[in-house]
């Protein structure tokens, strides 16, 4: 999706297309289709979550209360802010302000990195508290019996969901880094900024995924 749009800086569009508009529409459509795939990819995890929460509601409530609500909420704010700066990136590209575009891309990357850092702190704390599924998992529970195993399922889903989400964010940061590099070289003009726009779609999608993960993982425990 991105690469083909930037085939050669000398030509306005890649040779398989008839004109620049066709290329732009193809790139946008390509990203939307890719995001459809992503919805189903995360959809499988959300389905698994729904099934197990339905089976083990009490254990999921209890396990959810062990997540770090404060850091999770701060992170939600950080990521939403990054979506705002990403939207400003697209605007800067559209209006042809090169310096602003580079600066805003860097800011968006920094916010993404900040999110990952905070997430890393959370993970470290949870591993320290023996919440990482596996042999070292410990979950002292008020409910007898199966609750420990059921809570472990919650944390399996917690780590897989936040892990896959973080991987998407890492890819997004790298993507923005490449864009910032080319933006600094002046490749994007007000009549050609499709890669910025398309990367923006991806970035917003990764944010939206988090908007679903945050309540499912942090808020289902109810008041603490």
């Amino acid at each position: 999706m991105k690469g083909d749009g930037m085939a050669e800086s000398t030509r306005a569009f890649a040779e398989q297309f008839d004109d620049p508009l066709q290329q732009k529409e193809a790139a946008q459509a390509g990203m939307w289709v890719f995001l459809v795939t992503e919805v189903l990819f995360f959809g499988a995890l959300l389905t698994a979550y729904t099934v197990y929460r339905h089976l083990y509601p009490a254990a999921f409530r209890e396990a959810s209360r062990r997540t770090d609500l404060a850091l999770g909420s701060i992170n939600t704010a950080v990521l939403l802010t990054s979506s705002f700066t990403m939207a400003l990136c697209v605007h800067a590209a559209k209006t042809g302000r090169r310096a602003a575009l580079v600066a805003l891309l860097a800011l968006t990357m920094a916010l993404g990195a900040g999110f990952l850092a905070i997430k890393g702190v959370e993970w470290a704390r949870e591993i320290h508290e023996h919440l990482l599924p596996g042999p070292s998992f410990e979950f002292p529970s008020a409910y007898p019996g199966e609750a420990g195993r059921q809570a472990q399922l919650f944390f399996v889903l917690y780590f897989v969901m936040t892990g896959v989400h973080a991987l998407h964010l890492v890819i997004g940061i790298v993507l923005l880094g490449v864009l910032a590099f080319f933006a600094a070289l002046g490749r994007y003009r007000s009549d050609y900024y499709t890669p910025v726009e398309v990367a923006g779609l991806y970035w917003h999608f990764v944010d939206i995924v988090w908007i679903f993960l945050y309540p499912l993982l942090y808020l289902v425990g109810g008041p603490r």
Partner: peptide
């Protein structure tokens, strides 16, 4: 586009379950 990602995630979870001895 719609079906393949679900298989991908299911197989990923099987792999994780096998390697890390989880109980998904």
């Amino acid at each position: 586009v719609l079906a393949t990602p679900v298989l991908a995630m299911a197989l990923l979870l099987v792999g994780l379950e096998r390697v890390l001895h989880l109980g998904i």
